[in-house]
Every structure is written in structure tokens, then in C-alpha cells.
């Protein structure tokens, strides 16, 4: 995975924009204020220390990290204690994040810095890799 600085990563910037638009719409419907309640601190491997503002952001970011990556494995999350009400809100926003992120992936700006360009492996449907051996599933 390319070591794009967090603050200049177009994926992250795009999600931030979505988030701000989303929060402004929430405020219209009186679901105001909760987003400032939570601070998720993430230490993201070689990307650097990042503070996420809410669960939607957190979920969107993790959805983007769909490729296997050591950086992703190194993520440590310190979660706050939730009340039932806060959990319900977090679940709602997480659901919105899932909706928003695939849309962002379609935009050129979101994929401009993705390297390497292709999936690391496109094995044939029934092939598997075991200790470096590329095998048919039936070989086992």
C-alpha cells in the first residue's frame, strides 16, 4: 500500500467532506451535537497518528482499507463507553458510512493515488496459495 500521508490522502479528505455534509443534514433533523462527544484515537501503522471524530468516519475509513495491509493490522482503537442511545446513533451513522464510501470510490479523485494499480493476485477461481505454492483447491 502506498504510504500516502493521512492529511493529503484524497480518500480521507473525501470522506471528511461527506461527513461534514452529513452532519449538517443531521443537525437539521435535531440529531445535533453527538458527533463531538466521541474521540476515537487510532494509531495507523506507517500512516501516522489519526484522530477520528465519529463512528461513521471510522467505519468509512476501515471500509476503504479493503486490501490486505500490515498498516491495517497495526490499527489500535480505544473505544469510549457507550450508552444504549449512543450505540444506536453510532450504528445509524455506521450504516450511512457504508452507503457513502462506495460512492466515493467511484470518483476519480478518490482513486488517483491508489498504487499499485491492480489487485495483487487474480488467481483462477479454484486456486489457492499454501506456503508459497499456487495450488488447485483439489490438490489438498
Amino acid at each position: 500500500m502506498k504510504n500516502t500521508p493521512y492529511r493529503t490522502n484524497p480518500n480521507v479528505l473525501l470522506i471528511k467532506t461527506y461527513y461534514l455534509l452529513y452532519v449538517s443534514s443531521i443537525r437539521k433533523f435535531a440529531l445535533v451535537g453527538w458527533a463531538n462527544l466521541h474521540q476515537y484515537k487510532l494509531s495507523v501503522g506507517n500512516v501516522g497518528a489519526v484522530t477520528f471524530q465519529n463512528a461513521a468516519f471510522h467505519n468509512a475509513y476501515n471500509t476503504l482499507q479493503s486490501k490486505p495491509s500490515k498498516a491495517r493490522d497495526n490499527i489500535t482503537i480505544m473505544l469510549p463507553t457507550y450508552t444504549r442511545r449512543r450505540l444506536l446513533k453510532a450504528a445509524t451513522l455506521a450504516g450511512m458510512g457504508v452507503v457513502l464510501v462506495p460512492v466515493s470510490a467511484l470518483l476519480p479523485a478518490a482513486s488517483a493515488q491508489s498504487q499499485p494499480p491492480a489487485s495483487p493476485s487474480r488467481h483462477t477461481p479454484d486456486s489457492i496459495m499454501v506456503n508459497g505454492w499456487l495450488l488447485r483447491a483439489s490438490d489438498r
Partner: peptide, 8 residues
């Protein structure tokens, strides 16, 4: 290879 893929 036979250890990793007994059927093969």
C-alpha cells in the same frame, strides 16, 4: 509439494 498438497 506432496506435504502441502497430499491429494496431488
Amino acid at each position: 509439494l506432496s506435504l502441502q498438497a497430499p491429494s496431488l
